[in-house]
Amino acid sequence: MTLRMGLINKKRDWTMERFRAYWKDEHSKLASELPGLVRYHQNHVTDAAQRGISHKRGPEMLDGISQLWFDGVAGMDQAFSGSLSQRLIDDENHFIGRLRIVSAESNVVLEPPAPGKGIKRMSLLRRRPDVSSEKFAHEWRAVHGPLARALPGVLGYRQNLITHREDPKGTTVGYESMPIDGIVELWFEDAEALNSAFASPAGIEAMAHAKTFIDEITTFLVDTVAVV
């Protein structure tokens, strides 16, 4: 299955309340009509604090992250080349100030809970300059995944390895223009459980390993709306 994610910044003259309401109540109706769409989640950013960790943070600031799942790349490309495509673009231009797109290969390390259960943290990862993309993928999946799964109180954990980048939407760019290697999804019961997990011996070990291959970890707490 192929995952397409939108990195969203609202228009500057829109309040957060107006942006969230329009995205959830209006734009969702249009996006959910995409042919071949298997699942569609909106992640509304509620907090950008670097909770639980002291790792270097990147410059990214986001208001939302969309997630759209398709059966494959061909089906995804076909969905965004049809008659609905221009209507989507027109509507996005109505309430979104900046929209970048990434495609990703997902690796479910620990099956996530149902939307709305506990809290969810999403993090953008950038590898260290001395680490290749192949080395990053290996360390993240083969070594770091099991370490993070061992965090006490973790309810779910998914790794999304970036395979394609567009900035803005529709314009393919290279890594240098959008240096994001992966997007993490982690679920905990609450903020206290999140902080406790990373303060534990397992959390300390996981973050020590993170520093060997990750340069920046930029975290956001999100409220997830399951549209489809």
Rank of each mutant, 00 (worst) to 15 (best):
Tyr157Pro: 02
Gly145Trp: 04
Ala142His: 13
Pro152Ser: 11
Glu134Leu: 11
Ala137Arg: 15
Glu134Asp: 12
His144Phe: 11
Ala150Leu: 01
Leu147Val: 10
Leu155Arg: 15
Arg141Tyr: 10
Pro129Tyr: 04
Gln159Gly: 03
Pro152Trp: 07
Gln159Ile: 03
His144Gly: 01
Arg149Asn: 05
Arg141Ile: 12
Pro146Trp: 04
Lys135Met: 11
Ala150Pro: 06
Arg158Leu: 10
Phe136Cys: 02
Leu161Ala: 07
Ala137Tyr: 08
His138Asn: 13
Val154Leu: 14
Pro152Asn: 02
Gln159Phe: 11
Leu155Asn: 13
Lys135Cys: 06
Pro146Glu: 00
Leu155Gln: 06
Glu134Thr: 08
Ala137Trp: 04
Glu139Lys: 03
Phe136Ser: 01
Arg141His: 05
Leu151Ile: 13
Leu155His: 15
Arg158Ile: 14
Phe136His: 06
Ala148Phe: 09
Pro129Gly: 11
Leu151Pro: 10
Lys135Glu: 15
Leu155Ile: 10
Tyr157Leu: 13
Asn160Gly: 01
Ala148Asn: 07
Leu147Arg: 03
Leu147Thr: 12
Glu139Asp: 11
Glu139Tyr: 13
Val143His: 08
Ser132Glu: 03
Arg149Met: 02
Gln159Pro: 07
Gly145Glu: 06
Val131Glu: 11
Phe136Arg: 02
Gly145Ser: 13
Ala148Met: 14
Leu161Asn: 08
Ala150Trp: 01
His144Asp: 03
Glu139Trp: 04
Phe136Asn: 08
Arg149Thr: 02
Ser133Phe: 14
Pro129Val: 09
Val154Glu: 09
Phe136Pro: 09
Pro152Asp: 11
Leu151Glu: 03
Ile162Pro: 14
Pro129Ser: 08
Gly156His: 11
Pro152Arg: 13
Leu161Pro: 00
Ser132Val: 00
Ile162Gly: 10
Gly153Tyr: 04
Gly153Thr: 10
Gln159Cys: 00
Val131Gln: 07
Ile162Trp: 12
Leu147His: 08
Leu155Val: 04
Asp130Gln: 00
Ala137Leu: 03
Lys135Thr: 15
Ala137Ser: 15
Val154Asn: 12
Ala142Val: 12
Ser133Met: 13
Ser132Gln: 05
Tyr157Gln: 01
Val143Ala: 02
Ser133Lys: 13
Pro129Phe: 08
Tyr157Asp: 08
Gly145Asn: 13
Arg141Trp: 05
Gln159Thr: 06
Val143Pro: 01
Pro146Ser: 11
Gln159Arg: 14
Gly145Ala: 15
Phe136Asp: 02
Val154Arg: 12
Val154Lys: 09
Asn160Ile: 06
Glu134Phe: 05
His144Leu: 05
Tyr157Arg: 04
Gly156Asn: 01
Arg141Met: 09
Glu139Ser: 12
Leu151Gly: 03
Val143Phe: 00
His144Ser: 09
Pro146Met: 01
Val154Trp: 01
Leu147Asn: 03
Asp130Arg: 02
Asn160Val: 00
Arg158His: 14
Trp140Gln: 09
Glu139Thr: 05
Val154Phe: 10
Gln159Ser: 05
Gly145Gln: 04
Arg141Ser: 10
Pro129Glu: 13
Trp140Cys: 06
Tyr157Ser: 06
Pro152Gln: 08
Asp130His: 04
Val143Gly: 03
Leu155Phe: 06
Leu151Asn: 09
Val154Thr: 12
Glu134Ile: 05
